[in-house]
Design a protein around this nucleic acid. Structure first.
Length: 517
RNA sequence: GCCCCUCUAGCUCAGUUGGUUAGAGCAACGGACUCUUAAUCCGCAGGUCCUCGGUUCGAAUCCGAGGGGGGGCACCA
């Protein structure tokens, strides 16, 4: 019967039928044709399969909150209107149980043929899993105590044409999960949970900074020069200006211009782009928090960093204890601070310092199996020794501090040691999670650092920076003492959600385009 | 970019040392059933075994090339 509709009533849906049936003839296309026929069947009966709106009296979560304590076998006189997606259907003959879900909860619809009548019962029975429906009826519980809506009327809100993934096993294929995130979100609770946590983390960060008087700003994504970090940029082009532009690799230089302008405390949560490899910890576009606070130094910012992360965990999970390497760890524990040169020195059994000659540091590196490049200075080699020998052991939160000047072109020289900077990086699970420092605000020194970067770039370091003249001009107007911070929001979410791939916390991670079509 | 692993029905997965017509569960479809909970029961249908090429009497299975994905390395924080 419905098949006849599919073949005879295809004028308005001819395109769908053609694409669904001509070339493949697979189970999937048969399935879609059947549901398309059902759509046409509804239209023939004057039912809009895609109505415009639905008046909902309660979300499913609200309904459970208000009636969750009903005793088994109760019938109330409370009329509600609820809506959601059909997730399960249990046809009992003259009784149908339909589990619908909205974003807050799941509730069972109790459909009795004796209540709704034969015609309506058949219409409800034609619903498929995945359909969006709205129902009106009385709140009740079944004999076994399941909170239900005894429906008097159910309305289709949107017809689903595709089969749902396995109702028990969900969708496991990671490729499909990332490409078809909608399907992942429909069937995988963990996926929904992860993105709820992501939202809670970001909202918490905004609250923490807002409570400290920070102002949220937005700065350009298109940069004439990609500065503020060491990374290869994406290149793009503006037609009207006939101008080569770069997608930003950091937020830093614009935000500090705002501190020059007197905004005192600013932050931005924004997308940055780095044209580099993809890994479980790297996506080409990712979300950075950067914040800058006038009159603060890196010591203040380390405290801020821990506050932000502790609050984020508390707000997202309701606890500050998370799992690190299989063991519980309370984030409120004071996080140790260790100088990079000390961590590196410990591992090689010799005092290392960027004031030492390049030759002597090279020898230490080579003796310990650490490779170095000819254009690296002592400081850069020490960083490499740290990265190769010490970094992997930094599982619980640790502030690595006082990086060599050579690798920190935007950080201020340490007040007690001219070869080091007032900088820190936070490592958790051997991954960098945050980076901050007392900001360099001497325009003369900043120019010298930029020029050193420029020379490194010309010497072949593709990730080195260039001289940003406008930023130098800003500094000449006067940047107050400032403490700055950058936090990888994706990695922070990974930590709090307890997932191991960055793709799990990015709704639509970068993938190669799908073939064919 | 390099190395390893992986790809079978809409989904989740079997598929032996290469051997007839590639199987199961769920979903779908037909039927039974008024308190189910992944409902159950009966019946039926569904396949470009990622693609191309090769070896073989015979390939989902072995070989080569290519594609997607995952992990590692490199790059990079």
């Amino acid at each position: 019967m419905t098949q006849e509709h599919a073949t005879s009533d295809d004028a308005p849906t001819g395109n769908h039928d053609a694409s669904a049936s001509t070339d493949d003839g697979t189970n999937l296309s048969v399935y879609r044709e059947r549901r398309l026929a059902e759509v046409q069947h509804l239209r023939d009966r004057g039912v809009n399969p895609y109505p415009y709106r639905f008046d909902r009296s309660h979300t499913l979560g609200e309904l459970r909150a208000s009636h969750g304590n009903l005793a088994a076998g109760s019938e109330t006189t409370d009329t509600v209107a609820v809506c959601g997606r059909v997730m399960l259907k249990r046809d009992q003959g003259k009784l149908i149980f339909i589990t619908i879900r909205d974003r807050s909860d799941e509730i069972q619809l109790f459909v009795s043929k004796a209540v709704v009548g034969d015609a309506e019962f058949d219409a409800i029975n034609a619903f498929d899993m995945g359909d969006w429906v709205g129902a009106r009826g009385l709140v009740m519980t079944t004999r076994k105590g399941e909170l239900s809506v005894k429906v008097s009327e159910v309305q289709l809100l949107a017809k689903s044409l595709r089969p749902m993934p396995d109702k028990w096993h969900g969708l496991a294929d990671v490729d499909t999960r990332f490409r078809q995130r909608y399907a992942d979100l429909i069937v995988n609770h963990d996926a929904r949970r992860t993105f709820e946590i992501r939202h809670a983390v970001i909202a918490s960060v905004r609250r923490t900074l807002g409570a400290r008087g920070y102002v949220e700003v937005e700065t350009p994504v298109l940069h004439a020069e990609a500065g503020g970090a060491h990374a290869r940029p994406f290149v793009t082009h503006h037609n009207a200006l006939d101008l080569q532009l770069y997608l930003r690799i950091a937020l830093e230089l614009h935000l500090k211009r705002l501190i020059v302008g007197g905004m005192e405390r600013v932050f931005e949560i924004g997308r940055v782009f780095r044209n580099e490899g993809i890994s479980p910890r790297h996506n080409p576009e990712f979300t950075m928090l950067e914040s800058y606070e006038a009159f603060a130094d890196y010591d203040d910012i380390m405290q801020l960093t821990q506050d932000i992360i502790v609050n984020a965990a508390r707000d997202a999970l309701g606890t500050t204890t998370i799992d690190i390497g299989g063991a519980p760890y309370d984030l409120t524990t004071p996080w140790p601070r260790k100088r990079m040169i000390d961590l590196a020195s410990e591992k090689v059994g010799r005092e290392l310092h960027p004031s030492q000659s390049v030759d002597s540091v090279r020898k230490v590196a080579s003796d310990n199996g650490v490779k170095w490049e000819p254009h690296w200075g002592s400081g850069r080699i020490i960083e490499e020794i740290f990265a190769e020998k010490a970094e992997a052991e930094l599982l619980t939160p640790t502030f690595v501090t006082c990086h060599p000047v050579e690798i920190s072109p935007l950080a201020r020289v340490h007040r007690d040691d001219p070869h080091l900077t007032e900088r820190f990086e936070l490592f958790v699970q051997a991954r960098e999670l945050a980076n901050g420092f007392s900001e360099l605000n001497d325009p003369v020194e900043q120019r010298a650092r930029f020029e050193a970067e420029q020379r490194a770039k010309e010497a072949g370091d593709a990730t080195a920076g260039t001289v940003d003249e406008d930023y130098l001009r800003a500094l000449e107007f006067g940047l107050p003492p400032t403490g700055g911070l950058g936090v990888g929001i994706d990695r922070l979410t990974m930590l709090i959600a307890g997932v191991s791939s960055i793709r799990e916390v990015i709704l639509f991670p970068t993938l190669r385009p799908e073939a064919d079509e």
